[in-house]
Amino acid sequence: MDRFVTLNHGSGGRQTNDLIRELFARNFAMDMPLTDSAIVTFGGKKVAFTTDSYVIDPIFFPGGDIGKLAVCGTVNDLAVSGAIPGYISASFIIEEGFPIDELSRIAESMAREAVNAGVRIVTGDTKVVGKGKCDRIFINTAGTGVLLREGLDVSTASAVKPGDRLIVNGSLGNHSIAVLGSRNNLSFTTPVLSDCASLNHLTTKLLSECNGIRFMRDLTRGGLAGVLNELSSMCRRGIIIEETTLPVDEPVRGACEMLGFDPLYLANEGKLIVVVEENEVLKVLDILRSDPLGRNAAVIGEIAAVEKGKVILTTVTGGKRIVDMPEGVQLPRIC
């Protein structure tokens, strides 16, 4: 392992996984596989429990802000675990000199998103550090929610079988490009909005009305590529996706072409992947497409009996290639 932590350790790719597995999970004797939420038992009830920290530059970006993100992110981690999010904590690490009016905009935004998601923010903490000791503001949220039904498991991929289909609820990469485009040191702007949204109403509807959902995961830092690689190694199956079916908005594609980024690796904050048995595909698509958060839902591929542990992409020209686990932060290219 490296002697120092680099930004790659926080990119949600292989280095992040290595750090978590080799350093944290081992010391904490955590159960494998690691999923978005831990499922714990309280008084005989299965409860999902999760936490996440939010550090983003800029803190206000098109389509959201760090506060909205902090609520949605934790809500989504609970939602894709099959839980109904209930209570959330909110802790703030604030840099000395941070404007109070911006803090109140963030708090209002969190309150609004909590109402949207139907969760209550019930506890929290505030710390202020000296100038330069943190980048403006960091937020940590933790959340709990009761599992939708006893024995529900859509996180460990244990039920995933060859022939199951992969569905995403909409366009990929908008969050990454919106945030990148709004950084003030960059000389390009985009009309793209972050997809930052709470997905719990959507997941509750899906899990209540369909019995054939085998796996769900929100697509955050490591993008679709990261999640599919984790999925293929968890279920020990191959995954085949079709490039032509991937929903990517035109401005995002344009930005990717210019910067040399691959939309498969871009972060999202309001997207999930659903693995569903074949005969429920239409039902899932119907439910997704009738919701504003799933209007561009698409079937993007399937679980295969071959190519165990690999993710294969059929390209637009019919060629085939592997989609690897993201390696570090995507770096913009020279020319």
Binding site: G260, D262, T315, V316, T317, G318, G319, K320, R321, C335
Partner: peptide, 15 residues
């Protein structure tokens, strides 16, 4: 290098 990346990305050698 842009060509190398495009050839691999689109799987052109497999065609």
């Amino acid at each position: 290098g842009g060509h190398t990346a495009a050839i691999r990305r689109f799987g052109i050698h497999s065609l």
